[in-house]
Design a protein around this nucleic acid. Structure first.
Lengths: 193, 193
DNA sequence: ACCACGGTGGACTGAGCGGTCCAGAACGTT
DNA sequence: AACGTTCTGGACCGCTCAGTCCACCGTGGT
């Protein structure tokens, strides 16, 4: 399938339109017809650009959303070299998810797509990149002596990822960011102690 | 709807059969017909005992599973009065989810049911009870001087809940319990420090 | 001018599935 | 034994929705 400039634009329009729609509404009941209407396209186009249909489209949207997750944390996440930087990062994460509210785009997508290999791969790749950045930050803090050397950067970075994921999970049920904040603050506190 | 003894038994059979089936298979594609076949019942019975249909049945299963979550952590969760008890609890949680593997019954159910008020209520109630027990444990440890008084039991208990939820979430994608262990160990370590 | 190929529109299909309905069996109460 | 109530079975309905198909349009290369 060779795409022209126009074709790429349409494909992208479908992805972004679908992403926006899935972000606002409950994705459980989202149909291809909804997406068709929202993006001002037709069934023909959707299957032209995503031959495997719904699953392929949703996976493309998931990849798109996954990229945004890390983008929204930059530049803080990439330079966790001082306590001030950690605080800014913490605030960025909390702000992002507070704004997002109950509608976690990726979470909802995953609930939809289920546990296909492709879906797991998208999530795993995101979590790996995320954790890597946190780990890098911890290592750098250790090198400058701000964090004691006895802690295991990989392990604590994993704990951060788990804490954030869980905080967001709770947010999806309760609507509050208290757990997310508690997890982040407690772990940062742990690094400082 | 007045249920006889036989009726209650059938209703329970449906719930448990559905729970078992949902636990093993991908719940996204589970139909009422599947449940009917598994439980050896009929459409008539399902709607007799769950007049609101699929949603009511799934909610009943969710409640059933939610109860099991805490049950599986007992008696450890209810008596976090020594470091040994905390370790036993930690091991019980990890063992439970390791055995469960990728198939988180409640998580999958929630992905199915979506964000109905009823579903949120089930999850919120579970998390509250869970967090309460952890908080109680922290307070008791403080009273016996094993945990320093300067930490906020509520906040750290919330961090535990977030860490566990996130660890399970990661488990669902990667199949590994490393994140769950990292979260628990790091937070217990935090309490000890 | 032509032609080939990618882009676009939308009617149509087919099946899966939640939910309805009713007839009849079992039960238990008097 | 008779009658009301609950339990059970399964045929049936209707709708939703992913996916198909094909005709037509736009564009760019020669």
């Amino acid at each position: 399938m060779a795409l022209t400039v126009k074709g790429r634009a349409t494909r992208q329009r479908i992805i972004e339109g679908a992403a926006a729609y899935l972000r606002s509404d409950d994705p459980a009941g989202v149909t291809l017809d909804d997406i068709r209407a929202i993006t001002g396209t037709s069934k023909g186009q959707i299957f032209h650009y995503f031959p495997d249909g719904k699953e392929e489209l949703f996976l493309a949207v998931a990849r798109y959303e996954a990229d945004r997750v890390l983008d929204d944390q930059q530049p803080h996440l990439g330079a966790l070299t001082s306590w001030a930087a950690w605080d800014r990062w913490r605030d960025a994460v909390v702000a992002r998810y507070r704004a997002q509210g109950r509608n976690c785009p990726l979470g909802a997508l995953m609930g939809q797509v289920g546990s296909t290999p492709g879906a797991n791969e998208v999530v795993t790749a995101l979590l790996n990149r995320w954790q890597f950045h946190v780990q890098e930050g911890i290592v750098e803090m250790q090198e400058t002596g701000l964090v004691r050397a006895s802690i295991d950067p990989d392990r604590v970075a994993a704990a951060f990822i788990a804490g954030i994921q869980g905080g967001v999970q709770v947010l999806r049920s309760t609507g509050g960011v208290a757990h997310l904040e508690a997890a982040l603050d407690t772990l940062v506190d742990y690094l400082k102690s």
